[in-house]
Design a protein around this nucleic acid. Structure first.
Lengths: 135, 135
DNA sequence: TAAACTGTAATAAATATTATTACAATATAA
DNA sequence: TTATATTGTAATAATATTTATTACAGTTTA
């Protein structure tokens, strides 16, 4: 499991706290304690999903492109997800076995529904709600 | 993300199909298409949780220790889970930053609730329900 | 007592993740 | 107009995780 969700949420929380001021990838990386290049990559993704925008050049950095009340955690999850939520076997199961032949199809159905249940839960909370927990 | 959940569910589905007959780790591994040693490790875990039992020696193998209607997929998930559901940053966030200092605590709260939502969904389905999908 | 298994440890190989280096492009401001 | 601070991104290296393999002792059966 990678750390893209917590890293993205950390970035978004910091940007929310900055109230429109731009924040550099170095500053963000310093709070998260990861390499700034990873932060910039993650920001590229958040930008792609319309959550943030960035300004290049000296004095540049990133800022929220939407109000924190308009970003829910289900959307953030969808923006970073890559793996199957409950894992996958990379090898092809045995097609000669009735279970092997059909399991991926049935796992996919299960995963789709399970992920929707998770997203529904996450979608109840906005970035604003999350950021409010910080004192 | 590892493949422990799909591997465990595959094993359990095969054992359900075997109707009490013992199934060898070699046979299970052949259907899943993974190494038999991994199957035996995963079976050791399923045994620890009381889902299966095994018989050593020639003609040995594993079998369900409970009725498939008494095993729900939420329990299976709990038996194999190791990672935080939405990932974790292994490096310690910056304690000098208010967000860095508190984020793990707030992520933990979020993850606990999110995982409970996922488990609640999975718990609605038994192994028997899942196995019934196979023709 | 040979054969077919499980259980498990140790190690190797493969894959995935994260970190680092490097540098072009961009914007600011002295 | 030029030095500086930044983003964007590619390439590579380092680290961590996952999976596979090898090896073998112990168990049970026939």
């Amino acid at each position: 499991m990678n750390s893209r969700f917590p890293v993205s949420l950390h970035i978004l929380t910091l940007l929310d706290g900055a109230k429109g001021e731009v924040v550099s990838s170095d500053y963000l990386a310093g709070s998260i304690n990861i390499n700034p290049v990873l932060v910039r990559k993650e920001i590229a993704n958040l930008r792609k999903y319309g959550f943030v925008d960035s300004k290049e050049g000296k004095g540049g950095g990133s800022f929220l492109a939407k109000n924190a009340t308009e970003i829910n955690l289900g959307e953030v999850y969808k923006a970073v997800k890559s793996d199957y939520i409950l894992g996958q076997n990379k090898n092809e199961p045995n097609p000669k076995c009735p279970v092997g032949r059909q399991i991926n199809e049935h796992l996919l159905g299960l995963y789709t529904d399970a992920e929707n249940a998770l997203i529904a839960y996450l979608a109840k909370q906005t970035l604003a709600d999350f950021a409010l927990k910080f004192k």
